[in-house]
Amino acid sequence: MRSGSSDDAQARLLETALQLFASLGYDSTTTDMLADAAGVSHETVQKGRGAGPACTTRSWSMPTTS
């Protein structure tokens, strides 16, 4: 069962995406791989991110600290 807040899911997705892109390459990373590795649904990966070979990190911003 998948749980957690939306912010937690986004943080897991970003961290997981960076790890997978670094190890497998952007073009080889699928949304299913990302969802499984981050522990979120495929729909969560797609929601608000658009489609593509994986997900696009261009729509994600890194959190900043003040």
Rank of each mutant, 00 (worst) to 15 (best):
residue 2 R to I: 15
residue 2 R to K: 15
residue 2 R to P: 09
residue 3 S to F: 11
residue 3 S to D: 06
residue 3 S to A: 15
residue 3 S to H: 12
residue 4 G to R: 10
residue 5 S to N: 09
residue 6 S to P: 04
residue 6 S to G: 05
residue 8 D to Q: 15
residue 9 A to H: 12
residue 9 A to S: 15
residue 9 A to K: 15
residue 10 Q to V: 08
residue 12 R to N: 10
residue 12 R to M: 08
residue 13 L to R: 05
residue 13 L to Q: 03
residue 13 L to F: 01
residue 14 L to M: 14
residue 15 E to F: 01
residue 15 E to C: 08
residue 16 T to K: 07
residue 16 T to A: 07
residue 16 T to D: 03
residue 16 T to W: 03
residue 17 A to V: 05
residue 17 A to I: 10
residue 17 A to H: 06
residue 17 A to D: 04
residue 17 A to F: 05
residue 18 L to N: 14
residue 18 L to I: 09
residue 18 L to R: 15
residue 19 Q to A: 12
residue 19 Q to E: 13
residue 19 Q to N: 10
residue 19 Q to V: 11
residue 19 Q to M: 07
residue 19 Q to K: 12
residue 20 L to P: 03
residue 20 L to W: 07
residue 21 F to S: 05
residue 21 F to E: 03
residue 22 A to L: 11
residue 22 A to H: 12
residue 22 A to N: 14
residue 25 G to R: 10
residue 25 G to K: 13
residue 25 G to H: 10
residue 26 Y to Q: 11
residue 26 Y to D: 11
residue 26 Y to C: 01
residue 28 S to A: 14
residue 29 T to D: 02
residue 30 T to A: 02
residue 30 T to L: 00
residue 30 T to K: 06
residue 31 T to N: 05
residue 32 D to P: 00
residue 33 M to E: 04
residue 33 M to R: 09
residue 34 L to E: 07
residue 35 A to Y: 10
residue 35 A to C: 09
residue 36 D to L: 12
residue 36 D to W: 02
residue 36 D to K: 14
residue 36 D to A: 15
residue 36 D to Y: 06
residue 37 A to F: 03
residue 37 A to T: 14
residue 37 A to Q: 10
residue 39 G to S: 06
residue 39 G to E: 07
residue 40 V to H: 01
residue 40 V to Q: 00
residue 40 V to M: 01
residue 42 H to F: 14
residue 42 H to Y: 15
residue 42 H to R: 15
residue 43 E to N: 09
residue 43 E to F: 00
residue 44 T to K: 12
residue 44 T to D: 01
residue 44 T to S: 14
residue 44 T to G: 00
residue 45 V to P: 01
residue 45 V to C: 13
residue 46 Q to S: 08
residue 47 K to Q: 11
residue 47 K to S: 10
residue 48 G to H: 10
residue 49 R to C: 04
residue 49 R to W: 03
residue 50 G to I: 00
residue 50 G to S: 13
residue 50 G to W: 09
residue 50 G to Q: 03
residue 50 G to H: 09
residue 50 G to K: 10
residue 51 A to D: 12
residue 52 G to L: 04
residue 52 G to Y: 05
residue 53 P to E: 03
residue 54 A to W: 04
residue 54 A to Q: 00
residue 54 A to Y: 05
residue 54 A to N: 13
residue 55 C to T: 15
residue 55 C to L: 14
residue 55 C to F: 13
residue 55 C to M: 13
residue 55 C to V: 14
residue 55 C to H: 02
residue 56 T to M: 02
residue 56 T to F: 03
residue 57 T to P: 00
residue 57 T to E: 01
residue 57 T to N: 01
residue 57 T to V: 15
residue 58 R to Y: 06
residue 58 R to Q: 12
residue 59 S to Q: 04
residue 59 S to C: 05
residue 59 S to I: 09
residue 60 W to F: 15
residue 60 W to I: 03
residue 61 S to N: 04
residue 61 S to P: 00
residue 61 S to L: 08
residue 63 P to D: 08
residue 64 T to A: 08
residue 64 T to D: 02
residue 64 T to L: 04
residue 65 T to D: 01
residue 65 T to Q: 04
residue 65 T to L: 03
residue 65 T to S: 09
